[in-house]
Design a binder for these strands. Structure first.
Length: 126
RNA sequence: AGAGUUGGCGAGGUGGUUGCAGAUUUGUCCUAGAGGCAAAUUUGAGGAAAGUCCGGACUCCCGAAAGACCAUACUUGCUGGAUAAUUCCCAGUGCGAGCGAUCGCGAGGAUAGUGCCACAGAAAAAUACCGCCUUUUCAUUAAACAUUGAACAUUAAACAUUAAACAGCAACCACUGAGAAAUGCUAAAUGAUAAAUGCUAAAUGAAAUUGGUAAGGGUGCAAAGGUGCGGUAAGAGCGCACCAGCAGUAUCGAGAGGUACUGGCUCGGUAAACCCCAGUAGGGAGCAAGGUCGAAGGGAUUAGGGUUGGUCUUUUUCCCAUCCCGACCAAGGAGAACCGCAUGAGGUGUUUGGUAACAAGCAUCCUAGAUAGAUAACUACCCUCAGAUUAUAAAUCACGAUAAUCUGAGAACAGAAUCCGGCUUACGUUUCAACUCUCUUG
RNA sequence: GGGCGAGUAGCUCAGUGGAUUAGAGCAUUUGGCUACGAACCAAAAGGUCAGGGGUUCAAAUCCCUUCUCGCUCA
């Protein structure tokens, strides 16, 4: 379940900005960093609010095997994709995976991400 | 049937839905681009993609290309072959392991030279400490050597004396039997010597040191070819037999080497110590190499200058130098943008040559290309495996075979990042082929 | 992706072109000193020299290989 390119974070500068200025929310296996484009002064009123973009970060401390890291990334992307329509526009979000997340399955990520997004009030309708 | 050796196939298959990336086509949007968006079709990880241990291709720098000598580097190091190249691969030789199939080997040179071999040991690679023999001087002795061997000393058996346990007597003492042990005595047995006899004319000791010798010397991983017989003043491959090694000759082989004969007796180990010999190599950096994205170059001349660790030779206008000619600005725009970047020492099949690695020819196929980094989730059928139940033929029973149904599983190691060829490491199950050893015979 | 380096006692490091038995400081344990403690004095224990294999009479050291950790390159 990949994400379309428009929903990915691609610049190193974006990541820095999110880490430095964004909100933080925690769960046992994941950490969420989020930054709204409206709060930053860079965005100009002429642009319509851009789509929310996501980045996922896994260090080698989680697992040294590339297979394991890639699988976790894909599962998280799948969760995001299934909630894509509910998520508000204009956010830049980085999800950091903690070392304990090796044993998690798809359903665990589903629940945790939902809770994190609720806490950050990014999801519509709640 | 069990144990084992070697090599191979394979890493479930075909679909559906949602979703990601590339390519092609079509449509659409505008700022008109190698642009965005949408749809359709199609393609989308491995045997190791890994480790980065080697070898190349490719790119740039040291102007370039070629060559000679020297230096430097090299886990290059039996022989031949094969390859773009290699430390890989193939075939063989030698050595080693295994009953065997088979497997392993850094396998040139230690008489080119230098170094090292702790402790121990006389000595660690050529010497002589002890010892053995010889020579000289001095001293001593009729000794030494061989044979016989009294006395003497030691003790055994037997005998003598004393006499315990035990047995008999209902029981104790006594008595009778019994006889361990102790003491005494003794030898033709053992030990040692006086003495005698025989034989030779020297012998012994000390010192000196002339010469010989490498047999022997609690060591040590290793001691000067090994064992035996002869031989000698004492010894020694000094001679002989067998074994090991070396050299030469003959012969077989393309070669490493094999076989046979002869010879003189033959100077340890270490080169994964320096090194010698032969061989190979311009040096360095690596796709994060490097290049492109408007804005200056082109031509002529050769008298001169400039090169790879060093010296030198040849060629070349690559740069500098000198001279001549010529040029001029529309947009966008410096991004982890694009190219490099997916047709390659390619795959598959087949024929020919070759023992083989491999090579050549023909036919056919195009089969990942991301860049915060694309493969996932669910599901249907088939197939494979495991377990359970039932049935079938044969049968005394068991194992096993076939069929049907149900349940479960399809995993392990692991994810392309410029591309190839190797090596190394990781890896669950099933299966195929060839071969070896042992046991059994429905 | 490419290129480098390191691993020795609980910790920090020596040792290293083969040979004394692998050492030092801190920490630990025991004893002494002290009314008690610190400091001090004395002694002891503690090592698969990262793992495996090879060369050698002999390897922490020489050679090969594997593992772990770290650094660096636009």
């Amino acid at each position: 379940m990949g994400l379309p390119k428009s929903h990915r974070l691609r610049d190193r500068g974006n990541y820095r900005a999110v880490y430095a200025q964004g909100i933080r929310r925690y769960s046992p296996h994941l950490t969420l960093f989020a930054l709204s484009c409206r709060e930053t002064k860079e965005t100009k009123s002429t642009d319509s609010t851009p789509a929310s973009s996501f980045g996922i970060s896994i260090s080698k401390k989680v697992s040294k095997k590339a297979v394991v890291r890639n699988r976790i990334k894909r599962q998280i992307k799948g969760v995001i994709r299934s909630h894509l329509q509910e998520i508000k526009a204009g956010w830049q979000i980085v999800i950091v995976v903690r070392p304990k997340a090796i044993e998690c399955k798809y359903e665990h990520f589903l629940r945790e991400l939902e809770e994190l997004l609720k806490q950050a009030k990014i999801i519509n309708g709640y």
